[in-house]
Amino acid sequence: MAYYLHEKRRNYYVEFGQGRPVVLLHGISNSGRAWSPQIARLVETGFRVIVPDHAGHGASARIGAPLGIEDLAQDVIALLDHLDIESAHLVGLSLGGLIAIELALTASARVDTLVLANSFPSTSTDAFRALADQWASTFRGNDGPVKRFEGAWPSNVSAPFRASDAGIATWQTWHAIAAMADGESLAYIAQGIVGYDSTNRLSTIEKPTLVIAGSDDRISPPSISRDMSLQLQCAKYVEIEAAAHISNVDSADAFNAEMIAFLVGTESIAQ
Score class of each variant (00 low, 15 high):
residue 240 I to V: 15
residue 106 T to L: 08
residue 181 A to C: 06
residue 140 R to Q: 10
residue 148 R to G: 03
residue 171 W to Y: 15
residue 228 M to S: 04
residue 1 M to H: 11
residue 175 H to F: 15
residue 37 P to F: 10
residue 15 E to P: 02
residue 102 E to A: 08
residue 12 Y to W: 12
residue 125 T to A: 08
residue 156 N to G: 10
residue 204 T to F: 10
residue 206 E to G: 11
residue 5 L to W: 08
residue 187 A to Y: 02
residue 66 P to Q: 09
residue 227 D to T: 12
residue 152 A to L: 14
residue 230 L to F: 13
residue 189 I to G: 04
residue 219 I to F: 10
residue 6 H to W: 10
residue 112 D to I: 05
residue 147 K to I: 01
residue 215 S to N: 07
residue 121 P to Q: 04
residue 160 P to G: 04
residue 127 A to M: 09
residue 171 W to L: 14
residue 20 R to P: 00
residue 244 A to F: 11
residue 77 I to M: 05
residue 185 S to C: 09
residue 116 L to M: 08
residue 119 S to N: 06
residue 166 A to R: 06
residue 217 D to W: 02
residue 119 S to D: 06
residue 12 Y to D: 02
residue 67 L to S: 00
residue 99 I to Q: 02
residue 96 G to C: 01
residue 130 A to L: 13
residue 56 G to L: 02
residue 148 R to Y: 15
residue 133 D to R: 12
residue 68 G to P: 10
residue 111 V to H: 02
residue 152 A to S: 14
residue 61 A to T: 11
residue 148 R to N: 12
residue 260 I to C: 07
residue 176 A to H: 11
residue 189 I to E: 03
residue 60 S to P: 03
residue 120 F to C: 05
residue 247 S to C: 11
residue 51 V to H: 00
residue 6 H to S: 14
residue 70 E to S: 15
residue 206 E to T: 13
residue 82 H to I: 01
residue 99 I to T: 09
residue 179 A to E: 12
residue 8 K to S: 14
residue 246 I to W: 01
residue 124 S to N: 15
residue 176 A to S: 13
residue 257 A to V: 13
residue 231 Q to N: 13
residue 188 Y to K: 09
residue 190 A to C: 06
residue 245 H to F: 06
residue 83 L to R: 11
residue 100 A to W: 00
residue 164 S to N: 05
residue 235 A to I: 03
residue 114 L to F: 08
residue 182 D to V: 05
residue 110 R to Y: 11
residue 169 A to K: 15
residue 185 S to T: 05
residue 123 T to A: 06
residue 187 A to P: 04
residue 55 A to Y: 00
residue 97 G to W: 03
residue 157 V to P: 03
residue 270 A to E: 11
residue 197 D to R: 08
residue 113 T to L: 01
residue 45 T to E: 11
residue 33 R to C: 07
residue 203 S to K: 14
residue 215 S to A: 14
residue 121 P to T: 09
residue 36 S to L: 11
residue 10 R to S: 13
residue 93 L to P: 00
residue 31 S to A: 15
residue 3 Y to T: 06
residue 241 E to Y: 10
residue 73 A to T: 07
residue 127 A to W: 06
residue 223 S to F: 12
residue 71 D to N: 10
